[in-house]
Amino acid sequence: MAESSELRPLIELVDVKKGFGPVSVLKGVALKAYPGKVTALVGDNGAGKSTLIKGLAGVQPYDEGQIIFDGEPVTLHTPRDASALGIEVVYQDLALADNLDIVQNMFLGREETELLTFDEGRMEREASETLRSLSVRTVKSVRQKVSSLSGGQRQTVAIARSVLKKARLVILDEPTAALGVAQTEQVLNLVRRLAEQGVAVIIISHNLADVFEVADYISVLYLGQMVAEVETAKTTRDDVVGYITGAKTQARGAAA
């Protein structure tokens, strides 16, 4: 990625609000994510992380607030809006079709055709190259059925799918929650690799060890408010725990 664009966030949320009836879940939240950087979104259960993400995915639009994408104000009312901008969400329940193989899953909904029929060769090559560009080594064949893959490999396919879609912002909702040590490591490497390719990554995680390993920035939500946005290098685990539990607060925007 060009150096100049690193200064400017790819996406910026300003004073975003969302309520369900009388309950206000997001009470004026700000968030930034930078191209080539991993931003971790942390916060206790019910803090509003998923709600924040659903707004970005266009699944559940915000009530109020501004979304600035690549410097321009945008609206995200449907998943299609998000997709058109290059925003991809990798949900925790991976959304892969078990009965299809890796290539078929990676291209699902955007198959390459020629004369109305599939160009399987081309899809296979692009899938293979995408996985390789992410340094994936554990997949033996791209024609394996997804049902035969391990949890980490599935996560890998789901993430590679977003790369193939030329996503500019990839949001991962708890990508390591169900994984063992080795597979977690694999997926975190993949997340780094994704960022190296210039993608802006937002990762939700409850695991602070993961967060400190992979993230460049950490944003902490507490009861629907963004209580801290810090650079990982300039903070400690104890501080972040403090923000999450509400024991500690930070002046707004100090790290941004």
Binding site: P79, L96, A97, L108, G109, R110, L116, T117
Partner: peptide, 27 residues
């Protein structure tokens, strides 16, 4: 031919395998 080589067929299989995945893929 339709089931194996065209989008309609592939999407039919995808929905049969995981409807939610198909929906999120924009099908």
């Amino acid at each position: 031919f339709v089931l194996d080589r065209t989008k309609y067929g592939r999407w039919l299989y995808a929905i049969g395998g995981n409807e939610e995945a198909a929906r999120r893929a924009g099908i």
